[in-house]
Amino acid sequence: MTALQDKVAIVTGGASGIGRATAVAFAAAGASVVVTDLDGEGAAAVAKELGPTARSAQVDVTDAEASAAAVALAEQEFGRLDILSCNAGFTGFPTPTMDASEDEFDRIFRINVKGVWLGVRAAVPALRRSGGGAITIVGSIMGERTRPGFGAYASSKAAVNHLARTLALELAPDIRVNCLAPVATDTAMLPQFLGPEDPAGARERFIGSIPLGRLGQPEDIANAAVYLSSDAAAFLTGVVLPIDGGRSV
């Protein structure tokens, strides 16, 4: 598969979960990849797995200088930047909105929303130096259809979904911006969505609510990110794409 041949991508949150799957899928599609994560060792391990056309950096997405340094690394090592894939995110166990702590609320918005904004702000000049490019942002179906106990998280993802739409308008015509809106996916973060009580039962009940009869896998989101980042999606921007097995229908 060469849908991203000769493209250069930065993948945030790339040490695990959806970010890792996206980095792997981008590399398989022909892209050179800079894998970034707060877990620097994890990012380095993924880059090593991907081979000589991958690099890594420890990046806190809430740090503007760290985001800028990742862009500089991509240009230094590969000469350009064509794609930004924003995957870094945070949630907590379901908590009634009135019981959420101020620190937790701030942390969720700082990572999920401000982190995306800082990453995009750092990447746009480099994307334009390359003649344009594509940005994919991992939002959530919960940004369109929320659940009790996720006031902070769902609100942050609603902000991300709308941020993607706004950026699509502002950065056109040379930069496309699309948003992936997955349902809770089978990653290490899944237990936080399901809650600490009866995790096995909660998992089965959740699967029972998905028409396609299974949990989303990181590769489901990664494959969509490849498509939306490729020239095959050249006329798509401002899309918030549900990847939820039909759960939101």
Rank of each mutant, 00 (worst) to 15 (best):
P211F: 07
G42L: 12
I10E: 02
P173F: 03
A122P: 00
G213W: 04
L163Y: 14
T237P: 11
E104P: 04
G149T: 13
F193M: 10
F235Y: 15
I221E: 11
A122L: 04
P199D: 02
D198T: 08
A224H: 06
T187V: 05
V138I: 15
T91N: 14
A225E: 12
A164N: 09
T12M: 10
D99C: 07
N178Q: 09
L228M: 11
F90H: 15
F93H: 09
R147W: 13
F26Y: 12
A31Q: 03
A44V: 06
L241Q: 09
I18W: 10
V71F: 06
V249M: 15
S155D: 02
P218N: 10
P211N: 11
R205H: 10
M189V: 10
T53C: 06
R128Y: 01
A222Q: 04
T166K: 15
C86D: 10
S140G: 08
D106W: 03
I141T: 14
I210T: 03
E170S: 13
L241E: 07
A184I: 08
K157F: 04
S156R: 02
P125E: 05
A234D: 12
A232V: 06
Q217T: 00
P125D: 05
F235L: 13
R214A: 09
V71I: 05
K114M: 14
V59R: 11
A43Q: 01
G40C: 05
A44Y: 03
A69P: 00
E41C: 02
G17E: 09
A202P: 02
Q58T: 13
T91L: 13
T62H: 11
A88D: 10
C179S: 11
R80F: 03
G19C: 04
A126F: 03
F235H: 15
A54Y: 00
F206I: 01
G30K: 09
E197A: 15
P218E: 08
I221N: 05
P148Y: 06
G19W: 00
A43R: 01
G89N: 13
G151Y: 08
A64Y: 07
A233K: 14
N223D: 15
Q217R: 15
S101P: 07
M142Y: 11
A45H: 01
I18P: 04
S101D: 14
A159K: 07
A181D: 01
A43N: 02
P199H: 14
G42M: 12
G216L: 10
A224N: 07
N223I: 01
K114G: 04
L84M: 12
R203V: 14
